[in-house]
């Protein structure tokens, strides 16, 4: 029982991070209908931005590990990544807007490889793992035989807050209405006076900011950060987004949590633990075989 509870807490933490990254994937997919492979590298850049900001912020606030400092670091890193996301969309994806989706997908893979290999260059971040500073004071709690830390609580809380914020933006604001319109029918939306390019830029910015925050949270739980740190969580989050039905915000969160919890439980079984990297994909394939549109996605009928 304790083991179950402990795994549940671990799985919830992991799943929340996946969910946060999946939110970004799914939002971009919603408006542009393509998989932004560079998303996982934005996550890595977010973590590195935090690494380089931390000493400056600590000096400015007169001490490390303050809550204000952590918020400031996360906000600046998210802002930087949002700008970068907008820039990538503008330079690499926008010229391909009318091209087949496959061309855009390959470009996205190209952008992802470009960021990864540039970051691995020794004059940039170098390929070695770097220690990630502690941003917040950490407390440990014990309930019976179950241990958890303040980070374990923080991650799901941030994810929930972000989901709420995204839901509010998409459902309640004018920009959100425009986003949904672009997602529904780009041409019709532009005829109704929606500035499609601006909406797409905004979506990229928002998604990249989410990735940066997810990257910082991931780095707080991981032992260190390196230029390829985004690949595995990015892949899992992408699976989570597909699992929940890509383009669907609550679906991304459900997919992320399901994946995180299942992976932790199955990975905790001794003879399965070394297959951990394959488990996520096996779950995905199984679910897609029975629900091809994902858990919360609507099955669409192709019209001719």
């Amino acid at each position: 029982m304790d083991w179950l509870l402990q795994q549940l807490i671990n799985g919830l933490g992991l799943g929340s991070i996946y969910a946060l990254i999946a939110l970004g994937y799914t939002m971009v997919y919603g408006v542009l209908r393509f998989i932004n492979f560079a998303h996982s590298d934005i996550l890595m850049l977010g973590a590195f931005a935090a690494l380089y900001l931390e000493p400056h912020v600590s000096r400015m606030l007169g001490g490390p590990q303050s809550i204000l400092g952590a918020i400031l670091i996360a906000a600046v890193a998210a802002g930087l990544c949002a700008l970068l996301g907008i820039l990538i969309e503008f330079l690499a994806y926008r010229p391909l807007r009318q091209r087949p989706r496959l061309a855009v997908l390959i470009t996205a893979i190209g952008v992802s490889l470009l960021i990864e290999f540039t970051a691995q260059h020794e004059k940039v971040f170098s390929a070695k793992t770097q220690f990630f500073p502690r941003l917040l004071p950490e407390h440990s709690f014990q309930l019976g035989q179950v241990y958890f830390s303040s980070t374990d609580l923080l991650v799901p809380a941030v994810t929930a807050a972000m989901l709420a914020a995204m839901w509010f933006i998409v459902q309640k604001t004018r920009t959100g209405t425009a986003m949904r319109a672009v997602s529904f029918n780009q041409q019709a939306a532009s005829l109704m006076g929606v500035n499609v390019n601006r909406i797409i830029s905004f979506t990229f910015g928002l998604g990249s900011a989410l990735a940066a925050i997810a990257g910082i949270l991931y780095a707080m739980k991981a032992p260190g950060i390196e230029p390829l740190m985004g690949v595995q969580p990015g892949l899992r989050a992408f699976i989570a987004a597909v699992l929940g039905g890509i383009g669907n915000l609550p679906g991304a969160v459900v997919g992320g949590l399901v994946l995180g919890i299942l992976e932790t439980f199955l990975g905790g079984i001794p003879w399965l633990s070394s297959y951990r990297d394959g488990i996520a994909f096996a779950i995905l394939i199984l679910i897609l075989l029975f629900k091809p549109a994902g858990l919360l996605g609507k099955a669409t009928v192709e019209k001719v």
């Binding site: 998989i35 997908l105 597909v242 995905l284 897609l288």
Partner: peptide
């Protein structure tokens, strides 16, 4: 895209 990710998954598995 769904097929792309499933084949990617098979490769990884």
């Amino acid at each position: 895209d769904y097929l792309a990710i499933v084949t990617l998954g098979f490769g990884e598995i």
